[in-house]
Write a protein that binds this DNA or RNA. Structure first.
Lengths: 209, 209
DNA sequence: CGGTGAGCTAACAATATTGTTAAACACGAG
DNA sequence: CTCGTGTTTAACAATATTGTTAGCTCACCG
């Protein structure tokens, strides 16, 4: 081998990459270790050599995805200096863009957390504090803005669920939504652009006094 | 046996019911035929006696669920005589109630359609015509209402996706949303009531001129 | 009654999937 | 060079899961 170090890293990394794709596409139960190995271009035994078990390998992948989800929520701290409404708009767009760049992520994480309640409670422990302070913070800002007559008085939790719904669901259900769009086969780019604008406008209308 | 006919029907029916629960809970790949048989209280062989293969049994279940989804869209024809806005409100509520009464349905159908593109195109063939005329019809009504100044001029497709997102996503992601609600463990009933109202209000605001 | 057939059971067969092992290999350190 | 260590391979083992079969039971029908 010309470059051992590179090759070394590659084998483990190749397996991880193939596993990521496999698990994201088929879910834990639908994923097959032989297919992971073959699409990584390594023998089946290598997978067990590096990761011991399928579950182990899955956890490696899943932890990353879980972190990614947690990270996606940091967008709500963006642009603290902008005027309230502009800031909200930017936040919604940033969150939408994150989802658009990780289209398979929500369905994957939701599915796996639902079928693994023990993972769900771990995840909860990891982020519930963070989310709690986040919601409280935004609620305070929103109350302030409401006092100034900039927006309606709202329950921030409800608004956040609205945002998540509007930003995530269209990607989860994209194959089905194509049916609604029926006749005119949609350009995916155009669909994304439209939904992005729609999410923002819906929430903006909702916040109006 | 005291009552042969009843028992006959029961065995097949018991398997179907157990299978429905198993497939809805774990998906096709996660579902195990032995677990279906045992939770139906019959021997493993009976399952193959009545349904031949796992896939066959799955299709029986899935077709029903698919029909249910198609049927759920009929609510959009409700209350044709009410004033436009009241009618929309009633329709959103009816659709929400349907989802609330079939909470596991959307995630199941979406997951299976995504992992079975051939089923997706079958489903598309089944309902795309229906959906097409439905959208066209509502669009015409909406244009009329807009002309009269009752609502903004809107693209009905976008609104329908909004409605679907707001009505479906909170149930799909319910376990995760409990994390957002964090501290105060939510009463499920209260959560549903809140989301029901929220869906209607969001869309109503969106439609305002 | 005897036999016929649908429903049923237990045991088995076949396959798919995951996991293991012994031996070969590559390669740097001593 | 050769020893040791980490990597790789091919073949195998173990288990899980689906599917099949031969034969039993029993109500029913002539």
């Amino acid at each position: 081998m010309v470059n051992k170090i590179t090759d070394d890293k590659n084998t483990e990394e190749l397996i991880l990459l193939a596993a990521e794709h496999e698990f994201m596409t088929y879910g834990y139960n639908g994923a097959k270790t032989v297919r992971i190995a073959s699409s990584a271009g390594v023998t089946h035994a290598m997978l067990h050599y590096y990761f011991r078990t399928k579950e182990n390998l899955f956890n490696k992948v899943f932890e990353e995805k879980q972190k990614l989800v947690a990270k996606s929520m940091e967008v709500f701290f963006l642009n603290p200096d902008l005027p309230f409404l502009e800031r909200i708009k930017a936040v919604i767009e940033a969150h939408f863009d994150f989802v658009a760049n990780n289209q398979a992520l929500p369905r994957f994480v939701i599915n796996e957390l639902i079928s693994n309640p023990e993972k769900l409670s771990l995840f909860k422990d990891q982020i519930s504090e963070f989310v709690g302070t986040l919601v409280a913070l935004i609620q305070k800002e929103a109350d302030e803005a409401a006092k100034q007559g900039i927006i309606r008085r709202v329950n921030v939790t409800d608004i956040l669920i609205d945002v998540a719904s509007l930003n995530i669901f269209p990607f989860v259900a994209f194959p089905l939504l194509q049916i609604i769009k029926g006749d005119c086969l949609i350009d995916r780019e155009e669909f994304i652009a439209t939904r992005r604008k729609e999410s923002v406008e819906v929430i903006m209308q909702r916040l109006k006094p």
